[in-house]
Design a protein around this nucleic acid. Structure first.
Lengths: 165, 165
DNA sequence: GGGATCATGTAACGAGTTACATGATTTG
DNA sequence: CAAATCATGTAACTCGTTACATGATCCC
């Protein structure tokens, strides 16, 4: 369901687009939130068209098909946003790494935490220099908060590891 | 792969266990990090035994099978922890909701953000009163950081929405 | 004996990834 | 004309969820 919502959300906020465009937008604007490649997007658009959530607005050059969101599609996004329980599923490989840090010796653990810290720093840098329009402002701010708290956790953990090691 | 790692990690830190035990541990100690039900765990343990990562240590009452991690299994967890790229996949339905907030009118958006805030508060409360042994201390601390930053984001966003609305 | 919990599984389906395959158009 | 990019798809596979199914044991 989340893939549908993401696609409908992109069509709603950025206007009609082809599967190819949507795949690019996943790469550039949505990829720290959700991922999907063209092999998942193309068949999903076909199903969504069959379900009346999108329509093929017109076909362009090179077989390019432009999809537009329908009223039914808009209703579905709104319904999902308003009704979706945020506690449903969380899967974080980084948190799993944190969970299992105790299995490593101190040197290895330090290396892992440093890698995690570098990852959050890179994300912070990416988000910080956005021209502003690429992300919804609220998602941008959430990303910043999360990156900063990840870095704070890493610093705290590194200090603890170095103290005990 | 992450399911294997999670199972091996539990077996490594908490000792031999049955599929049933592992499913319980997923519910109680790992569930804000990774989820898996018994229907996924039982077949995976069989495959892992075939791959030499775990062994059936003995069979107990009621067909209970106790699995233990092997040296090969330990090596795999360590390798994964040390070598895994944290930037791989992140999928957050909450972040997707944040991304799409602009599609809602202010009243609806406020309701959604308040729900998200309540969710993070509930998690904070759960983590805060842990006896300490249930989570690895580093994962616990990461969870606390994330919950607090989620609440901070929600407060900021609610203020912004109320200001504009 | 009856309900709760222990304990294990299978089957069908949906979601997501990787590899393969094809052809049109633009740019150098 | 060759390489890059545009543009769409299929097939095979793995991962994850939901529904179904079974039987043992414990406690009242």
């Amino acid at each position: 369901m989340s893939l549908r919502i993401a696609l409908l959300g992109l069509l709603a906020t950025k206007g009609p687009a082809s599967g190819y465009d949507l795949a690019k937008k996943f790469e550039h604007s949505l990829n720290h939130v959700w991922q999907a490649g063209h092999t998942q997007i193309y068949p999903e658009l076909v199903k969504m068209a069959a379900d009346g959530l999108v329509t093929v607005e017109h076909e362009g050059a090179r077989g390019r098909k432009i999809y537009a969101i329908t009223a039914e599609g808009r209703a579905l996004v709104t319904e999902w946003l308003v009704g979706h329980d945020p506690s449903a599923t969380v899967r974080s490989e980084t948190a799993l790494q944190a969970f299992l840090l105790a299995l490593l010796d101190t040197g290895q653990a330090v290396a892992v935490v440093e890698r995690i810290k570098a990852h959050f720093q890179a994300r912070l840098a990416t988000l910080d220099c956005r021209p502003g329009g690429l992300f919804g402002q609220y998602a941008l701010s959430l990303g910043l908060h999360q990156a900063r708290s990840g870095i704070a956790w890493a610093d705290e953990t590194l200090a603890a590891l170095r103290h005990e090691g």
